[in-house]
Amino acid sequence: MKPAPFEYHVPDSLEQALDLMSQYADEAKILAGGQSLVPAMNFRVVQPSMLIDLNRVSELSLIREEGEAIRIGAMARERHLEFDSSIAKHIPLLTEATPFIAHPQIRNRGTIGGSIVNADPAAELPVLMLTLDARLKAQNISGERWIDAHDFFAGMFTTALAPDEILVEIELPYMPPHTGWSFMEVAPRTGDYALMGVAALVTLDENGKCKKAKLVYLNAGDGPVDAKESAKLLEGETLNDALIESAAAMASQKEINPFGNVHTSIDFQRHLANVLTKKALKQAMQRAEENQQ
């Protein structure tokens, strides 16, 4: 239960960190909040020969508004997302979902960038990145590029980042007007990994019809699962119980691909997805209607 030895670097600027990554990309692992990496190192499941610790790169933890979006530094702590007033105002889904991540003691250290790059299919933040159409800024020593969240997650614990790239910033557009949201999950105990979870968004047009819908699931496949076809069933329609029922049935039976685990069968995960989808869509719809008045 003790980590294997490693070489340790602690840059105090992004420039230094990128320089280190250009030299040591093959052997180094980035240490962000450490709330997934350090347990894995304690178990010696992973034994990186070098850690590059970003905790002293203060420029990476800013949260700011820019244009019609919020930009969040990759090292912003989950606990800061939870209490940030501009996030609460413009992206209430993120404020509502963040407390589902583990416990306050974990969120005090865990970072948005760390959770995204870890790409755990059972984690909340990757799901939220797809739901909110995030753009992710990756940087290496020779430059930067923006990656659409929909192109970022490449499978179980795998992302589109090149070995020498660091995720530095996340851009989240404001939620559009007349949008309702919901985040729901079922976990065996508070703070545990959820057996199933869903983030839902519903945007209404001026006639009260559904203009845009989103349904994204956690622990439902080898990454965050965007149930696009089910969401499409709702678009252009006046939402009612029958439609919500069909979308939930389609998402839970056709679009997600849960694996089951020691706590749950695949059938139970599909059942949960069905029930959670209906509840989440109803809550999102109700909030969208309230937002319209």
């Binding site: 340790y8 602690v10 450490g34 709330q35 350090v38 347990p39 304690n42 610790d53 905790n55 003691q105 974990i106 005090n108 250290r109």
Partner: peptide
């Protein structure tokens, strides 16, 4: 915080 998930050097 969890002191088992932080290195002393941090």
């Amino acid at each position: 915080v969890r002191s088992c998930l932080i290195f002393a050097i941090q």
